[in-house]
Design a protein around this nucleic acid. Structure first.
Lengths: 142, 142
DNA sequence: AATGGTATTGCAAATAATTTGCAAAGACAT
DNA sequence: ATGTCTTTGCAAATTATTTGCAATACCATT
């Protein structure tokens, strides 16, 4: 896997240039969490004045393609992005406030899954698991 | 659960009217599978001439809200919709051809999951599980 | 079967997210 | 320091989805 290499190294290896914009995007994502393109644009703008939206989108696309960033299709209207660092995890999403939290449960390990996949003759590369419901906060208010 | 009631009954119970358009949308989804709003529009248009896109969207939204239809955020650019009938299932998605297939594996049953959720004090109502990779077809060609 | 109140539709226009073409600027191997 | 090739900013295009509003269709009631 790419896990041992830093995002910067991976870019270099693939012949991509390490621009200020890319550094800024990676830096923003490095602090963890999942962000929309909008949020990333805002956060990066603080570090790199005048960055353009299309630059954000183009680079997120690139980083996803290189396996550096994961795209989450959590809500219905826009993608969220997060850096793939060592710790594999999944997500818990509150239907009320929209908050997204991480869980370190991974259901994929279960042997049965792999068995059935073999029947399908499907070569699995990634998987996603999301749990929806009401978070503690939302349940306890009103 | 709503599983015992037909979509039509559920609509009635909620005081919603059973319009031709709604019947057509439900009929289209009843044949199974997952479709984009676009596809549903095309399919429904065959049954009900002159239906409008906004009617499709408004009703899909309604049906999702009533727990009759599930919205799948499988691809990055648009939602897919499928009828929730008796059999709970998840999805396997080919990264190459985009084909989506169902699997009857459900990882949520694992006890551990529920334990950790309790720690989070999160009340889970739904969950989704998707496996991405390369399907048999795509792997065997070229 | 006709009627009326209310939910629903079609239409057209508005949003919002994302993508694209192109000339100018930047990265980096030499 | 230079040249090449990638990447950026800009502006405009695309695509999915939503919304306001007047006209219409459901369906409970008469």
């Amino acid at each position: 896997m790419n896990n041992e290499l830093s995002p910067e190294k991976i870019l270099k290896n693939k012949g991509c240039k390490l621009t200020q914009q890319r550094k800024a995007i990676i830096e923003v994502l490095s602090s963890g969490g999942h962000h929309t393109a909008n949020e990333i644009y805002a956060l990066v703008s603080d570090k790199y004045r005048g960055i353009n939206f299309s630059t954000i989108y183009r680079n997120l696309e690139l980083l996803v393609g290189l396996g550096i960033v994961e795209r989450l299709n959590i809500s219905d209207n826009c993608s969220h992005f997060e850096l793939i660092n060592g710790k594999h995890h999944h997500h818990v999403i509150c239907n009320k406030c929209g908050e997204v939290r991480e869980i370190d449960i991974c259901p994929f390990a279960a042997a049965e899954d792999r068995e059935k996949l073999k029947e399908l003759d499907f070569e699995a590369t990634e998987h996603k698991f999301e749990i929806y419901g009401i978070c503690s906060n939302c349940r306890h208010k009103e």
